[in-house]
Write a protein that binds this DNA or RNA. Structure first.
Lengths: 367, 367
DNA sequence: CACTAGGATGCAATCGATTGCAATACGTCC
DNA sequence: GGACGTATTGCAATCGATTGCATCCTAGTG
């Protein structure tokens, strides 16, 4: 009942099994040894022109492809990079958050371009150490993790063991792993400075400073205030996690609180957009009464009206930098963290019969 | 200079190489054979309780993980599903198109839940046959392709050779492969009927009927007209591909053409949103003058104002159906195509001081 | 013609696991 | 005490490739 895997041609009964063609088959048909086929297909100089052509033609004709698993096993390589998207059970944030998705696209391009395969994996953010299994088990050569979350220490521990990982996120003190991220402090400062420059004085901050990225942006928020001789109003600094619901709630609470404000810096476009919508639903005009600046410049922002001014993270560069850094790590080098320059993307408010994008408006505080 | 791989303990010099731990190491340390370790770790009943515990503990302590490559080679499996996102050089559409990305998230979840890994791969839409290499080379067990594009025939050819593939897209006549998709005809009909029900009579269609999905939606568009005793105005049916630029251009050309219209059905939310913005920039009020319905219900639409009425494709179900169908195919069965029910998502126009979402408005034709 | 250099090819070990079958150990029963 | 059953364990083949080394063949040279 078992398949007798003799060297005989065997019964060519039904190809139903799609039992893949192997080198041995090609070898037999070409009348040479497996070694020769292997060498011919890998372009070894040892093989004569004539033989190589014959083997190559045969392989092409039969639609043969080298079994990568076996090849990898033998060569101890695998040309695969795992991209890990942690998800947080508590905030229920997951892979479909728009920013992550854009990042994925950018990574897919960069990885493919370099001839690697991309393995996409989600892990519970509380089980980050589990990712090491991807490498230990030979699934992937190395890992790109999107976001540090609250797990700087876990990441450090991994890196301490020479684990090939590169992280998208903030550059932190005493960081053992290589990171790629935009300059969050500068980003926060740019956004805030923009609001201040347009005459806003009572600025709201939306973000969760438990996340390193958000903490840095908050730092920038404070610096910009200091630079302008303004003080940060702690009652306007609100902890909002990266979900739309959280932002909606926070906005409503803010309106109810009665604190006045005329500007808002949100740590993500999603928050910003939700805040704007919530404000509008409550009869407040954006940007006249409240100017809003977001972060990330996701696809959404490009189509949103009123135009959402935001801080763009150069995602394409990010994908490339992440991949190249990881390849460097795999190559035994120790690449330095990459800090990308965030860019303020100022979008004109294109209301019907759009006013020119004047910057120095002054509106009555909301609520 | 070469590594002498003798059975000796060898020089434990530097673990720099991170040369991975193997079963042989565990075996040596546990004082048993490799076979025993393998059985112990895979929970074979042949192994005594005592030995198993010892081996398991050792493995855990040493942070050992079975080399999946070798395991797969031996077991002739690989528990990996490749998700292929074709990109089209001509329309320059690629993986970051919002709808694709949402689909990815949904697939990642479904695949992970079933204990498979997900390999993400982009291929040139003109080289679709190249995907078969992923399976022939043992990279993945099967393939989920997102979108049929214009390549029904190529897909059929693959499927004819018992190639394990499942496709997200329309169900077409004489289709050999398994597809999962929403009922595009019904979707188009729903959207159109909604426009007609709100009193619109001169409807624009935006889409590229070279894509089967769009063609079906157009069919629904025509049916709804017929049902209502209206005629389709061919001068208002415009070929627009799935990019924002194309939609913007088309809208402008439409406005310049002087043809009057009071409703618009776009084959994607991206088109719809772009059209709305372009209309607004040209001084036209949506939805008063022109009512717009999109397709997909991407994240963007949830946050867009005026609220975008759209046809939702149930992505979560889609991901699950795609994965389960593929698993069925891999299991040798022939799953039937899945047709998911599209849903009309009606969003109130939430302008400041929002009017109630009355449906029966009648506006002056644009341009 | 014998000898050799060197080009082309094949043999067999190897990568790190799994598993059929043989071998061993131990206890029980006649 | 010997035969036998059962519970464990190990040996060795195998998965599909790559590659060091041996072998074979041919042509060139003295």
């Amino acid at each position: 009942m078992k398949k007798t895997t003799t060297g005989k041609a065997g019964s060519r009964a039904k190809p139903v099994d799609t039992r893949s063609l192997q080198m041995a088959d090609i070898a037999r048909m070409a009348g040479v040894s497996v070694s020769t086929v292997s060498r011919a297909l890998s372009g070894s100089a040892l093989i004569s022109e004539k033989t190589r052509t014959r083997v190559e033609d045969l392989a092409r004709t039969l639609n043969y492809a080298v079994n990568i698993g076996a090849q990898n096993l033998r060569l101890k390589q695998n040309r695969t990079i795992a991209v890990v998207v942690p998800y947080d059970r508590s905030t229920r944030q997951h892979v479909s958050e728009p920013f992550f998705l854009s990042m994925l696209g950018s990574l897919a391009d960069a990885i493919t371009d370099r001839g690697y395969d991309m393995l996409l994996s989600r892990v519970d953010a509380d089980e980050l150490h589990a990712v090491s299994k991807l490498v230990r088990s030979g699934r992937a050569n190395g890992i790109i993790m999107i976001g540090q979350w609250r797990h700087h220490d876990q990441l450090n521990e991994l890196a301490a063991n020479d684990f090939p990982i590169v992280v998208w996120g903030a550059q932190l003190p005493r960081q053992l792993y290589c990171s790629v991220g935009s300059d969050n402090l500068e980003g926060g400062r740019l956004a805030t400075r923009h609001l201040i420059a347009s005459g806003r004085k009572r600025l709201v901050f939306f973000g969760d400073v438990d996340f390193p990225e958000a903490a840095m942006r908050f730092e920038g928020f404070k610096r910009a205030h200091a630079d302008a001789g303004l003080r940060v109003r702690s009652e306007l600094c609100i902890k909002v996690d990266f979900t739309a619901e959280s932002a909606r709630e926070a906005t409503q609470r803010l309106l109810l609180s009665g604190h006045s404000f005329d500007g808002l810096f949100a740590c993500s476009d999603l928050m910003a957009v939700t805040a704007i919508n919530t404000l509008a639903e409550n009869g407040h005009v954006v940007p006249d009464e409240v100017a809003v600046v977001g972060y990330d410049d996701i696809e959404l922002s490009r189509h949103f009206r009123p135009g959402l001014t935001t801080i763009r993270q150069p995602l394409e560069q990010a994908g490339i930098a992440l991949v190249d850094s990881l390849l460097a790590v795999l190559d035994g080098r120790q690449p330095l963290p990459t800090v990308l320059e965030p860019v303020l993307v100022e979008r004109a408010t294109c209301v019907v019969g759009a006013k020119p994008p004047t910057v120095a408006q002054r509106g009555a505080p909301g609520a």
